Amino acid sequence: MDTLSRVALGLLTAACCVASTSALAQPYNPSGPLTRAQVRADLAEWRAAGYDPLDWINYPENAQRAGAIVAQRRAAAAMPQSVQ
């Protein structure tokens, strides 16, 4: 290899290292993509609230009703419990 190609290869390697390091250092984004396990847990929570993904006849109503129930449950879980 001649000197120019070694320098170019070194610069390319350095650029890849910097790009991968900055990609790994991204802060947590709760609105980012979910894992498969998170999606399955979310679907199980919706099904426990009464949502049936195969019920296309009552689709908007059953999804809205289950969404409201899931939102209420999550809000109740997020609130600190008062000591009595």
Rank of each mutant, 00 (worst) to 15 (best):
Q81L: 13
L12E: 03
A44P: 02
S31G: 02
A68D: 02
Q84I: 10
A19K: 00
E45D: 07
A77P: 14
Q64P: 00
A49R: 02
D2T: 15
A63Q: 04
E61K: 09
P30Y: 10
C16A: 11
C16V: 08
C16N: 06
L9A: 14
P60D: 00
A41E: 10
V7G: 06
D52R: 15
W56E: 10
L54W: 09
T21P: 02
D42P: 05
Q84P: 13
L24I: 12
R40P: 04
G50S: 01
E45N: 03
A78D: 15
P80C: 08
N58C: 01
E61G: 03
D2Y: 08
S5Y: 06
R73N: 15
I57T: 12
M79R: 15
A68V: 07
D55F: 11
Y28N: 10
Y28V: 13
A25P: 08
A37M: 08
S20V: 00
A8P: 13
R40N: 14
R40L: 14
Y51A: 11
V39G: 05
A44G: 02
A25V: 12
S20F: 01
Y59Q: 07
N58W: 01
R40H: 10
V83H: 08
A37L: 10
Y59N: 06
P33E: 03
T21L: 07
V70K: 11
A8W: 12
L11D: 01
A14H: 00
Q72V: 13
V70C: 09
T21C: 07
A76G: 08
M79S: 14
G32K: 12
I69C: 04
Q84F: 14
R74C: 10
P60Q: 01
R65K: 01
A8Q: 14
V83K: 06
A63P: 04
A63G: 05
A23W: 13
A77H: 13
L9I: 08
C16M: 07
A15R: 00
C17R: 04
R6V: 03
S31C: 01
N29F: 05
G50C: 01
P60M: 02
A23Y: 14
Q64V: 07
L24Q: 15
S5T: 13
S82G: 15
T3G: 02
L43S: 05
N62D: 00
A49D: 06
P33S: 07
Q72P: 07
Q64C: 01
Q38F: 06
C16Q: 05
C16G: 07
P80Q: 12
L4Y: 10
A66E: 00
D2I: 15
A76F: 04
L11M: 04
S82D: 14
L43C: 05
A41T: 03
V70W: 04
W46S: 14
Q26E: 13
D42M: 10
L24R: 13
T13G: 08
P27K: 11
Q26S: 11
A76Q: 11
E61M: 02
T3H: 06
A41L: 05
Y28A: 10
L4W: 10
